[in-house]
């Protein structure tokens, strides 16, 4: 495994009787955009939460950037940026203050922090909104500021849990461009989504996950070819007999 890759082996997570993640194994290469595609409750967030050390697995291993999350979580946290599915932020801080707060928690030098904040706010189109208190933001603005908060530390590996939910088409496309730019900078990106289009146009490789189990893993093109499908939705239907979402 290369420096900024991820290796997950036989990952299992039980919540009491419920198996949320079932014997999951996959690798993410350094510099790759990797997508976990699956319907609600598939186990995407649980997988991300284990990989970032928020949850402890029942068994199996997850090695992030060369460090086992189980005993080297503090090392992993210096490498990663995480955008949670529920965008947590301080409503009484402005957008910019929220971002800079997290930059400070990452111990970023002041000058670099300011420069990077400006740059990221510009990229997500929040330059003007950034001076307002985040509690007054629209849903889409919250998602965008949350993304900036996650990436402020210029992480080598980015975990993005449903990064474009609740965004309008324009913001979604801007966010995709933004994620593609991360790739050109050599970052590893692992994102979850239930948007077919997002997985197809953004991800180098996609893992299709349902009820905690990884059903298929390949490039979108190869998956479609293998199942004789015109898009990933059809791939999912062919494998499971169900639609990803109604």
């Amino acid at each position: 495994m290369k420096e900024n890759g991820i290796k997950v082996v036989n990952l299992l997570k039980k919540f009491d009787d419920l198996i949320a993640v079932n014997d999951l194994s996959f690798e993410v290469k350094s510099g790759e955009i990797f997508g976990l595609l699956g319907p609600n409750g598939a186990g995407k967030s649980t997988t991300i939460n284990i990989m970032t050390g928020l949850l402890h697995q029942t068994s199996g291993t997850a090695v992030i950037g060369g460090y086992d999350i189980k005993n080297k979580a503090h090392k992993v946290r210096e490498l990663i940026g995480v955008c949670p599915q529920e965008p947590a932020f301080y409503p009484y801080l402005t957008g910019r203050e929220n971002v800079e707060f997290f930059g400070n928690l990452h111990g970023m030098p002041k000058k670099f922090l300011k420069q990077r904040t400006d740059e990221l706010l510009e990229m997500v189109g929040l330059v003007e909104g950034a001076t307002r208190q985040a509690g007054k933001y629209s849903g889409g603005m919250i998602r965008r500021i949350s993304l900036v908060m996650a990436l402020i530390n210029d992480p080598k590996i980015a975990f993005l849990d449903e990064p474009t939910v609740a965004m309008d088409v324009q913001s979604r496309r801007a966010t995709w461009d933004f994620i593609k730019k991360l790739k050109t900078q050599g970052k590893t990106v692992i994102l979850t989504t239930h948007y077919i289009e997002e997985a197809e146009s953004l991800c180098d490789r996609v893992g299709i996950i349902d009820r905690g189990t990884l059903l298929a893993l390949d490039t979108p093109r190869a998956l479609m070819k293998e199942h004789g499908a015109k898009d990933l939705e059809e791939v999912f239907i062919k494998i499971t007999g169900r639609k990803i979402r109604e």
Binding site: G53, L54, R77, P84, A88, F89, Y90, L105, M149
Partner: peptide, 13 residues
């Protein structure tokens, strides 16, 4: 409850 503590937990803090 808002999840911001978890978010802080994801930094080296």
């Amino acid at each position: 409850t808002t999840g911001i503590l978890r978010r802080i937990q994801l930094t080296p803090t």
